[in-house]
Design a protein around this nucleic acid. Structure first.
Lengths: 136, 136
DNA sequence: GTACACATTTATAATAAATCCAAGATTGGA
DNA sequence: TCCAATCTTGGATTTATTATAAATGTGTAC
């Protein structure tokens, strides 16, 4: 059994072929793909794949903490197999989304003192190095 | 001329009635309303208002830095007239979105050293005080 | 191995947000 | 007042997501 299959099993997810391939796709393409991206690429090798399955499977992964939703002011939901706490940077010129590591120990927050925080999301926008140097 | 109208003018936006009322609504309702919220409430007093106008106007405000898009893993875009740097906390129990002040001086970021950052967004999810104490 | 119960996947249709577009209304300046 | 530019409108489209019900696949007891 593949490593991915084992991993799904350990997380109480039956390792169907679609689920294995979707998880592998997520891990092999850490560019925060959309449902459409995943569907278009996997349907080539799984012609019967339906988009609903991609939606269901990604929701399942998120519920089991094997993936995260990445939202950066876009109407299309993106997914990320990296569930550790990290930030995202979106280049407004080329559209790429980069990961960056964050250490939020020093982040002061006032106003939500007694709130129970379960998820922290940080995203920046701007222009990436590549686009900065290739400007005109 | 109203204060809001002056403000729009200063930002090179022609202060039409729709624009003034949308900006006022945003400022009077700092709960990060959606386009639907704004439209449903303003159409009562401006019966001819169209949703497209709300979309156009909000886009205009964002481009002129008079409003910001707030995205917290929802399919509906929310808007905020507060353009200063602050965080958002979404309670997963009651759905409310709270503002909180952040001081990101202490936020370490590795991996985007030479990137030009124009916007920083921080949002947390969890359970707010009110819901925590009213639990069962 | 077969049969059965249950889980998964599929296709289609429904819903809802956002965008497009062309026509009509409004505005500011000559 | 008139004109040109800008703004607004309403309806039609596009696109993402969800719901539903039928079909298919899978694991287990026999």
């Amino acid at each position: 059994m593949s490593e991915t299959a084992e991993r799904l099993k350990r997380n109480n997810i039956r390792p169907s072929y679609a689920r294995i391939r979707i998880m592998e796709y997520l891990m092999e393409h850490p560019v925060h793909p959309t449902v459409e991206d995943i569907y278009q690429n996997l349907v080539k090798e799984i012609p019967t794949l339906s988009k609903t399955t991609v939606y269901n499977t990604l929701d399942l992964f998120v519920r089991h903490n094997l993936a995260r939703v990445v939202t950066i002011e876009e109407n299309e939901t993106r997914y990320d197999a990296d569930t550790t706490n990290h930030g995202h940077f979106k280049c407004e010129t080329c559209g790429s989304v980069y990961d960056f590591t964050i250490n939020d120990d020093g982040l002061e927050t006032k106003g939500i003192g007694d709130f129970a925080v379960t998820e922290k999301h940080v995203y920046f926008k701007g222009i990436c190095k590549k686009c900065l140097y290739s400007k005109e």
